[in-house]
Amino acid sequence: SSGGSSILDRAVIEHNLLSASKLYNNITFEELGALLEIPAAKAEKIASQMITEGRMNGFIDQIDGIVHFETR
């Protein structure tokens, strides 16, 4: 797709992000992006959206560029 990722790509990214949230206590956007094979800024945006929508527990430290995952 030309304008970003398809629905399937997005679903795969979100699935992998949720998997990462179970493996890590926290991770930088750079590391997360590398893990998900997407730019760091996109990793931040998707993580932020999932947390806001209540689909993933955690919070974002924008100063240090880190996602902190919280286990249920």
Rank of each mutant, 00 (worst) to 15 (best):
residue 66 I to K: 12
residue 37 E to N: 15
residue 8 L to N: 11
residue 65 G to A: 06
residue 61 D to V: 08
residue 68 H to W: 15
residue 57 N to V: 12
residue 18 L to W: 05
residue 44 E to P: 01
residue 18 L to Y: 06
residue 3 G to W: 05
residue 4 G to A: 12
residue 43 A to I: 12
residue 2 S to K: 08
residue 6 S to D: 14
residue 15 H to Y: 12
residue 10 R to F: 11
residue 26 N to I: 10
residue 5 S to M: 08
residue 57 N to F: 14
residue 40 A to W: 10
residue 27 I to N: 00
residue 72 R to S: 11
residue 64 D to T: 15
residue 23 L to N: 08
residue 11 A to N: 09
residue 57 N to C: 13
residue 33 G to Q: 03
residue 13 I to R: 02
residue 30 E to R: 08
residue 5 S to P: 12
residue 2 S to I: 11
residue 2 S to G: 11
residue 4 G to C: 11
residue 15 H to T: 10
residue 65 G to Q: 08
residue 57 N to R: 13
residue 39 P to I: 04
residue 34 A to Y: 11
residue 61 D to W: 06
residue 25 N to Q: 13
residue 20 A to Y: 15
residue 29 F to P: 01
residue 40 A to S: 07
residue 2 S to F: 04
residue 12 V to Q: 13
residue 71 T to C: 11
residue 40 A to M: 07
residue 3 G to A: 11
residue 61 D to L: 08
residue 49 Q to Y: 06
residue 41 A to K: 10
residue 54 G to M: 05
residue 46 I to N: 00
residue 36 L to H: 00
residue 61 D to T: 07
residue 32 L to Q: 00
residue 13 I to F: 05
residue 9 D to E: 10
residue 43 A to M: 04
residue 49 Q to K: 07
residue 59 F to H: 10
residue 60 I to P: 00
residue 24 Y to T: 04
residue 69 F to L: 04
residue 46 I to Q: 01
residue 14 E to Q: 04
residue 63 I to Q: 10
residue 12 V to I: 12
residue 62 Q to G: 08
residue 31 E to G: 06
residue 36 L to A: 02
residue 45 K to G: 07
residue 39 P to F: 04
residue 14 E to D: 04
residue 44 E to C: 14
residue 41 A to N: 09
residue 50 M to I: 03
residue 43 A to Y: 02
residue 9 D to N: 07
residue 27 I to E: 00
residue 64 D to K: 15
residue 36 L to V: 02
residue 29 F to S: 02
residue 23 L to I: 13
residue 16 N to E: 08
residue 8 L to D: 11
residue 63 I to W: 07
residue 65 G to M: 07
residue 61 D to E: 05
residue 41 A to S: 13
residue 11 A to T: 10
residue 60 I to A: 02
residue 47 A to Y: 03
residue 17 L to I: 14
residue 7 I to L: 11
residue 54 G to H: 06
residue 60 I to T: 03
residue 13 I to M: 07
residue 34 A to W: 09
residue 31 E to F: 07
residue 72 R to H: 11
residue 21 S to W: 04
residue 69 F to H: 01
residue 62 Q to H: 15
residue 5 S to C: 11
residue 17 L to W: 02
residue 7 I to G: 11
residue 11 A to R: 07
residue 3 G to Q: 12
residue 33 G to W: 03
residue 9 D to K: 05
residue 72 R to N: 12
residue 54 G to A: 04
residue 72 R to E: 10
residue 19 S to E: 14
residue 55 R to N: 04
residue 39 P to R: 03
residue 67 V to G: 01
residue 48 S to G: 09
residue 10 R to W: 14
residue 18 L to K: 05
residue 52 T to S: 14
residue 46 I to F: 08
residue 36 L to N: 01
residue 44 E to S: 12
residue 42 K to H: 15
residue 21 S to K: 03
residue 26 N to T: 13
residue 17 L to F: 05
residue 3 G to M: 10
residue 57 N to P: 09
residue 54 G to R: 06
residue 68 H to A: 04
residue 14 E to G: 02
residue 55 R to E: 03
residue 13 I to G: 02
residue 70 E to P: 07
residue 69 F to G: 02
residue 56 M to I: 15
residue 5 S to E: 13
residue 50 M to A: 03
residue 2 S to V: 12
residue 43 A to H: 00
residue 28 T to Q: 02
residue 11 A to W: 13
residue 12 V to P: 05
residue 51 I to D: 01
residue 45 K to I: 12
residue 55 R to A: 05
residue 9 D to Y: 05
residue 63 I to E: 11
residue 17 L to G: 01
residue 35 L to W: 07
residue 38 I to L: 07
residue 1 S to K: 09
residue 12 V to G: 08
residue 62 Q to Y: 15
residue 39 P to N: 07
residue 35 L to K: 04
residue 56 M to L: 15
residue 56 M to D: 00
residue 35 L to A: 04
residue 68 H to L: 05
residue 11 A to C: 11
residue 60 I to N: 01
residue 49 Q to G: 05
residue 10 R to D: 14
residue 2 S to H: 12
residue 60 I to M: 04
residue 19 S to R: 15
residue 4 G to H: 11
residue 34 A to P: 02
residue 48 S to A: 13
residue 52 T to A: 15
residue 30 E to W: 09
residue 6 S to L: 09
residue 3 G to Y: 04
residue 44 E to M: 15
residue 48 S to P: 00
residue 38 I to M: 06
residue 30 E to Y: 08
residue 71 T to V: 10
residue 21 S to Y: 04
residue 63 I to K: 13
residue 47 A to W: 03
residue 54 G to D: 03
residue 22 K to G: 05
residue 22 K to N: 06
residue 49 Q to P: 00
residue 43 A to D: 00
residue 21 S to Q: 04
residue 12 V to S: 11
residue 21 S to H: 04
residue 38 I to F: 01
residue 22 K to Y: 08
residue 1 S to T: 13
residue 56 M to Q: 01
residue 35 L to Y: 08
residue 29 F to W: 07
residue 4 G to K: 10
residue 18 L to I: 09
residue 6 S to N: 11
residue 14 E to T: 04
residue 16 N to M: 15
residue 41 A to L: 08
residue 61 D to I: 08
residue 18 L to E: 04
residue 58 G to V: 02
residue 41 A to H: 11
residue 54 G to L: 05
residue 50 M to P: 00
residue 63 I to S: 08
residue 51 I to H: 01
residue 58 G to L: 02
residue 25 N to T: 14
residue 59 F to N: 05
residue 37 E to M: 14
residue 23 L to C: 10
residue 22 K to R: 12
residue 35 L to R: 04
residue 7 I to P: 11
residue 31 E to Y: 06
residue 1 S to F: 03
residue 39 P to M: 04
residue 64 D to I: 11
residue 22 K to H: 07
residue 28 T to Y: 03
